[in-house]
């Protein structure tokens, strides 16, 4: 099928919509990378920069919403166009949440800068962070190239992030039991780990939407999930 619309301005609008999503994705990626760097280096200035930059992601999400509203009203899109437009507004929402979690991580990093923290706990979070970053990058590539195989691969490996998060959870719990003075710091770290784990969930939703856009169907519900690794009292 030819990819061009008879009405060329429609093609241009769809291109702009994709460009906005890619820009949001790039910003969310940078926000996450900097939030993790700030955590690792206990860098308050960098954390503040992450917090301040979140408004740009929010503004882009509003732009996407406005554009989608306009296109639905004025173009009455069908089939693959309709799916692209519907998935765009939802992907924008997920990317906004990813950036939000990065911001929240930065906020807690500022609090942690004034508190002694068990360095080993940060190491586990870094691992969750690297996995989430990898998934986010692949998801954005899958979006840009409408790469179904890559989207599905990201979708299938959210389990790794969940497992890594559950590892951090157990580790931090051990520190808190060993030394109750670390409870404040470890609780913040626990929230940070949870934030990053949630980023993985949003990334999973993004690739599901990429799949929906390309095929018109969802991936189904046979995604591998980790089995009850949450803390259970013995």
């Amino acid at each position: 099928m030819a990819n061009q619309h008879l009405v060329k301005s429609f093609d241009e609008e769809l291109r702009v919509l994709d460009a906005r999503i890619s820009e949001m994705g790039g910003l969310a990626e940078a926000q996450l990378a900097q939030a993790l760097q700030a955590l690792r280096e206990r860098d308050t200035a960098l954390s503040e920069a992450v917090i301040a930059a979140d408004v740009r992601v929010d503004a882009l999400e509003h732009d996407v919403q406005d554009q989608v509203l306009q296109m639905l009203a004025l173009r009455q899109p069908m089939a693959v166009d309709l799916r692209q437009i519907l998935s765009a507004i939802k992907i924008a929402g997920h990317l906004e949440r990813v950036a939000d979690y990065a911001k929240n991580t930065a906020k807690r990093t500022i609090v942690l800068a004034r508190t002694p923290i068990p360095t080993r706990g940060v190491g586990g979070i870094e691992r969750v962070g690297r996995l989430a970053q990898g998934s986010l990058k692949d998801a954005l590539d899958a979006f840009a190239q409408r790469d179904l195989a890559r989207a599905r691969a990201v979708w299938a490996r959210d389990e790794e992030i969940d497992d890594a998060y559950n590892g951090v959870f157990r580790e931090l719990l051990t520190y808190m039991i060993e030394d109750p003075r670390t409870i404040t710091a470890c609780t913040h770290l626990m929230f940070i780990a949870k934030n990053i784990e949630r980023i993985g969930d949003h990334v999973t939703n993004v690739v599901e939407l990429v799949g929906f856009r390309v095929t018109g169907t969802t991936f189904g519900d046979d995604r591998p999930k980790s089995q009850g690794a949450m803390y259970r009292p013995q």
Partner: peptide
Amino acid sequence: TRTQAYITGRIG
């Protein structure tokens, strides 16, 4: 693909 092209207003 012909249906897709027609209903989305693409060059078929």
